[in-house]
Design a protein around this nucleic acid. Structure first.
Lengths: 229, 229
DNA sequence: GCGCTTAGTGTGTTTCTGACACTTTCTGCT
DNA sequence: AGCAGAAAGTGTCAGAAACACACTAAGCGC
């Protein structure tokens, strides 16, 4: 079947930069390409947009198909459209970045016969297309956004300790934070609920679990409150 | 001439939200459509991306063609791709926002037989397509960005007074600012050069002119300085 | 020379930021 | 039993930044 137009049309794809966090490193989800171009190379999950779906739906669909991931925070990142970024034809890619709770989506290997793996962002392999550039932009955006919107919680399980939260911020911001100041600030916002629950089976004093109260955040945000770290 | 593909391709356009400032209001540049759909309605300048040009080049070309504007600050805003946003066919629009010095591009009417006009952002006409949504996103972005990057200067002439600068910020942020604190803060950054030049022919004390020192800003930015207002 | 208009200027208070070190609790090893 | 190791949890002080606030200076028109 063929599709004909009076003017030339570029192809449009979505690509997703999917971040996860494993209590030490910020990680990125990549797939190994089965087809040319860049056959065998690692690349961002993504694919062509269908004519009847919007861009975000396309990103979600591709992620589910290629990696099995379903629940995630997804936000549009930037659109990459250099004429030569794909050797086959003119392809414009609308990139998204996503944050997932690694605990939810354990290390399921390949879902679709494709090779899928998490890489620490500090040790990424060479990527196909202009995907290294896309990752760079995504990291910059994540780093900026995590400071003024409470999106860090999307990378943690529902219940987490303040230590885990701090390590997450340190990994994303690539700088150490002072424990006392960090706790003072984050608890002072009154967005976290302390649970009557503590770590089990740890070889040191057990930390208390907390939960992010999104409802409360949204109420405060309406009244002009700004998350800031 | 016809173009044929094996898979359906959407059309891709660029649209630009062009802001200007006239010493009182933030303004937006619109064109009146000559053709269906939305014939006669006001809309954002924009058009189809050619296959051999990148997205930003397409935005610049359309702006020059439709409005005659050449020198401007241009940055990608967001990509809009709801399946039904254009009644003709599936059209994905990569939106840009631009800041221009109104003084440079005086009220040249129509350059291309098209009707072009500046509207105060508070008094926009109904717009075609989903362009009202695009403007909304652009305003939000401008409001956020103007606080932590020195882009406000793009809306002013090279030489400006501190009063003009303050009025610009007040217009963009939609809130009054304290004159003494504003001056203290902006001068404290040492990004403005005071010129030996004063207003002429004003019916009150003449204000001194200043100039934004971009070089200095870039040097400081490299060393970790953050503009913030 | 008086009235109108905008430019230009400093201080004190409060709030926020950032540096900094010890005690508590739990496990595992001897 | 007790000691070593590891991370949790906790408060204060000093300097910096934010914010509120009101008068004098200069130029023009009448």
């Amino acid at each position: 079947m063929a599709y004909t137009y009076q003017h030339p049309h570029p192809a449009v794809t979505v690509d997703a930069v999917v971040f996860g966090f494993d209590d030490a490193d910020l990680k990125l989800l990549l797939i190994q390409r089965k087809l040319a171009p860049f056959k065998g190379a690692w690349a961002l999950p993504g694919g062509f947009v269908r004519l009847d779906e919007n861009l975000e739906a396309a990103a979600r669909r591709e992620l589910t198909d290629e990696t099995g991931i379903t629940r995630l925070y997804l936000e549009q990142l930037y659109t990459f459209g250099e004429p030569d970024r794909d050797p086959r034809e003119r392809v414009i890619s609308v990139a998204y970045y996503a944050l997932v709770k690694l605990s939810d989506h354990a290390l399921q290997a390949a879902s679709d016969a494709e090779n899928v793996a998490w890489f620490p962002v500090a040790e990424l392999p060479k990527l196909g297309f202009d995907h290294e550039r896309i990752v760079e932009v995504a990291l910059k955006r994540l780093k900026a956004k995590v400071r003024y919107e409470p999106i860090g919680f999307e990378l943690l399980p529902v219940k987490f300790t303040l230590g885990e939260l701090q390590r997450l911020y340190e990994a994303v911001l690539e700088q150490p934070l002072d424990k006392r100041n960090f706790r003072k600030k984050i608890l002072g916002m009154e967005l976290l609920e302390a649970l009557d629950e503590y770590q089990q089976d740890v070889a040191h004093r057990a930390a208390q679990y907390y939960r992010f109260n999104r409802q409360r955040y949204e109420q405060l945000a309406k009244r002009g409150f700004n998350f800031e770290l």
